[in-house]
């Protein structure tokens, strides 16, 4: 009888010890993670903002100033203020004389692995895309990530046709074709060995341009060559 009681107290003691150990380690872990998160957050945010800024200047050569825009429910652009959040972010780039150089548009869609986030530059004057950058992707290293590095693929976006037809819609939707089979200026020459990833880029740009290019074109026509407009606010 006394033996049983003894065992019970022992069990109780060891469960207490187990609980204490796990809770203790849990608290240490939580503290460590939260501390690192807090410590790295400002730098991570700064690096991300810098990367975005750099990407905007890269997809819109000749830009000096940028202004972020959002799209409201009526399909019109509005100027974004600090802290505003919308699903589609558009950055207008201005040159020295406050003329619009073009628009950098953020878009995202499903890739081979996880969501791909990209930024592309649109030049309304020539009605073409003039630049492209991947902001975030988890595509297979060495294969899918060729969408960021392969030169012939990136060359697609130096002059990709997105001209509008009379009824204010895209004349031809952007599409990815097999490598070496590009025939029309609105087609993207794909990558052998990264078929899914390069097609995903085509889809993302195709969807995003057919939605946004008409809006941006109108915005450009309205604001074209009206210096100082951007400073009004």
């Amino acid at each position: 009888m006394s033996e049983v009681a003894n065992m019970e107290t022992q069990n109780l003691a060891s469960s207490k010890k187990m609980l204490l150990a796990m809770v203790g380690i849990g608290i240490i872990s939580a503290l460590l993670i939260v501390t690192t998160f807090e410590l790295t957050l400002p730098r991570v945010q700064r690096l991300k903002a810098e990367a975005l800024e750099k990407a905007i200047f890269e997809v819109l050569p000749g830009t000096v100033n940028t202004q972020a825009f959002g799209v409201n429910a009526n399909g019109e652009l509005f100027k974004m203020k600090e802290g505003d959040k919308t699903e589609t972010a558009i950055y207008a780039g201005y040159d020295n004389n406050d003329n619009i150089v073009g628009y950098a548009i953020e878009a995202s869609g499903q890739g081979y692995a996880d969501i791909i986030r990209i930024l592309y530059g649109y030049e309304p004057d020539k009605e073409t895309l003039i630049g492209f950058q991947v902001l975030e992707s988890k595509e297979t290293p060495g294969l899918g990530d060729k969408i960021e590095k392969e030169e012939h693929f990136l060359n697609n976006f130096k002059a990709l046709d997105v001209s509008l037809s009379n009824n204010n819609k895209l004349q031809n939707k952007v599409i990815t074709v097999k490598q070496g089979e590009k025939q029309n200026p609105w087609e993207i020459d794909g990558i052998t060995g990264a078929t899914i990833s390069s097609r995903a880029i085509g889809n993302i740009i195709g969807t995003s341009t057919s939605e946004l290019v008409p809006i941006l074109y109108n915005h450009y026509k309205k604001n074209h060559q009206k210096p100082k407009e951007s400073n009004e606010q």
């Binding site: 060891s14 796990m22 380690i25 872990s29 998160f37 991570v44």
Partner: peptide, 29 residues
């Protein structure tokens, strides 16, 4: 000497996962 034998594996996993998360943030930074 502090962790009882019965929960040692669970405690290892917790510790490892913590440092992986820390590394993830550090590499991002």
């Amino acid at each position: 000497n502090f962790v009882p034998k019965q929960v040692r594996i669970a405690s290892y996993i917790l510790i490892i996962a913590t440092f992986v998360t820390v590394t993830d943030y550090a590499i991002q930074a």
